[in-house]
């Protein structure tokens, strides 16, 4: 097997103190993580666990203190080159598209920044809209004219524009309604099958991560506590924290939920003692 596409080794990240001379506050305590070609790795954790920070470091939006982020065996390239290889889909579909720009302008932006000709860019974005199942008339309209799920499709199209090899998805479905969630996940899976793009999928929801990931890493307080194949981690976790995460999430079936709740209560009782 060749070297993984993305390899994170012993990553440490400090948040600067709020004020002058205030001590740094460590967010990540030596994280190792790798994502293979065309693979989805789900990164699951609760708020403040540092999962979003990992994504932001990979995207070059946050500086790291020590450790290594390698892409395709090389150190991660700088912003301009990275744009061709690594892309992102963010959580909030309302804030991730500039409300003052048309969808056409939003989608051509990364291509024009990469010096594509306008005609090539136009052709590429109609192809992309087709890819994410949005009608062609979309281009001249503004983000506010679309629903959350549609905007997230547009954000996916933007991420795909330059045929990246890795997309960092930071909670891409957690702001969406249940029915829309499933459809956007299906779209991501389909895109991955067609293009072979790898996904680093960050979420707080184990069920969502289980749906889309080949491998799952569980992060707690800046440390990866469990990592493995999807069914092993999501259905038969070994680490206490992962088990707590799993049993804490309620099932939409009164009887099975009663069992799960009992298991959760048992687990919290034993871990507290």
């Amino acid at each position: 097997m060749s070297a993984p596409l993305l390899q994170i080794k012993n990553l440490m990240v400090d948040a600067p103190g709020r004020r002058w001379r205030q001590p740094h506050h460590r967010i990540l305590h030596g994280v190792d993580l790798s994502v293979g070609q065309g693979q989805t790795v789900g990164l699951v954790g609760e708020s403040g666990s540092g999962k979003t920070t990992i994504g932001r470091v990979v995207l070059g939006l946050f500086p790291h203190t020590s450790g290594e982020v390698r892409f395709d065996g090389q150190p991660m390239p700088a912003r301009r080159e990275r744009g061709a290889q690594v892309q992102a889909v963010f959580q909030d579909p309302y804030s991730s598209l500039n409300p003052a720009m048309t969808i056409g302008d939003i989608l051509t932006e990364p291509l024009l920044a990469a010096r594509w000709s306008r005609t090539d860019a136009q052709a590429r974005i109609s192809e992309l809209l087709d890819r994410v199942a949005m009608p062609a008339g979309t281009l001249r309209r503004y983000p506010r004219e679309f629903s959350g799920g549609q905007r997230q499709r547009i954000a996916i199209a933007r991420a795909l524009a330059r045929e990246p090899r890795l997309i960092v998805c930071d909670e891409p479905v957690s702001a969406l309604d249940l029915s829309t969630q499933a459809r956007v996940l299906d779209l991501l899976i389909e895109v991955q099958r067609d293009t072979g793009v790898a996904l680093l999928f960050i979420s707080h929801d184990l069920a969502v991560v289980r749906r889309i990931s080949h491998r799952i890493a569980v992060i707690q307080s800046g440390r990866i506590v469990e990592e493995g194949e999807v069914e092993q981690v999501a259905d038969d976790p070994t680490h206490d924290y992962t088990r707590r995460l799993m049993t804490a999430s309620p099932l939409p079936d009164p009887d099975r939920q009663a069992e799960r709740r009992a298991a959760w209560l048992e687990l919290t009782r034993t871990t507290k003692e």
Binding site: G60, R80, G83, S95, S96, N98, E109, P110, A114
Partner: peptide, 14 residues
């Protein structure tokens, strides 16, 4: 603070 600025950075814009 808007995510579209992050998205633009990720897209490789200066």
């Amino acid at each position: 603070r808007e995510l579209y600025i992050d998205a633009a950075q990720v897209s490789g814009l200066s």
